[in-house]
Simulated scan of single mutants.
Amino acid sequence: MENKWKGVSIRYIPFSIREIMMESGNSPPAVLPARKKMLSVDVKRTGKFWDIPLTPPPKFMEWIMKYTTTGAMQVLLVLEEQDKELMLRAAREFWMRLWSRSEKIFEDQDFVEVLKAIGVKNVDEVIEKSKEEKFAKILAANTQRGVDMSVSHLAHS
């Protein structure tokens, strides 16, 4: 695929989109009737534009009302501390599970499957470490930075 963003450096930062939306006063597209109608169209259009397999999971609404991605984000933070490339591979695998294969990414068993898929040997250790207060605090700080940027952007628009 052609690189449409030549010269752009991307830094992946795990955060809670749910918290950013709540704190900034934004509502998720799936809970607003007009945006909900367009969500499927937008997802298909995005997948086609970027030439990536992108399919909304059939249980997406059920899942977003029941689960959060907090645990997955904290697993990514543990991996980032160990090896940034490993974190990127896990982030891609989480994404593929949810948006290409309609598989969950919210519970410990989901994390086990992702970590095994990317070749992590100490799977249980990574999952246990992700539950440490340290990683909850890093996630909260990353999320707060996103809230601050969102609110700042809204104030300047």
Rank of each mutant, 00 (worst) to 15 (best):
Y67D: 04
W50I: 11
L154V: 03
A136Y: 11
T69Y: 09
Q109S: 11
S130W: 00
L86Q: 07
E93V: 04
R35C: 08
E133Q: 14
R35A: 13
E19I: 09
F60R: 06
R92Q: 14
V8L: 12
I105S: 00
V114A: 04
T143K: 04
P58V: 11
T69L: 09
D110Y: 01
L54W: 06
K37M: 14
G7A: 05
R145H: 12
L115S: 00
A91P: 06
V41A: 10
I127Q: 00
P29T: 07
K116M: 03
L139M: 08
L88Y: 11
L76R: 00
Q74K: 15
R45Y: 15
I52V: 15
S152Y: 12
R89W: 12
P33T: 08
S102G: 07
R18V: 13
M21I: 05
E62G: 02
T55I: 13
F94V: 06
A136I: 05
E128T: 10
E23W: 10
E19R: 11
V41F: 14
V8T: 10
R145Q: 13
K4I: 15
D42E: 08
L77P: 00
E133I: 12
N26G: 05
K116F: 03
A34R: 13
R101C: 02
S27V: 11
E23V: 01
R145T: 13
D124Y: 01
V78P: 01
M87S: 08
D83Q: 06
N122S: 09
V147D: 02
L98Y: 14
V147Q: 01
R89P: 01
M1N: 09
E81Y: 06
E125G: 01
S130D: 02
A155F: 07
I64P: 00
L54R: 04
E128N: 12
E85I: 06
T68N: 06
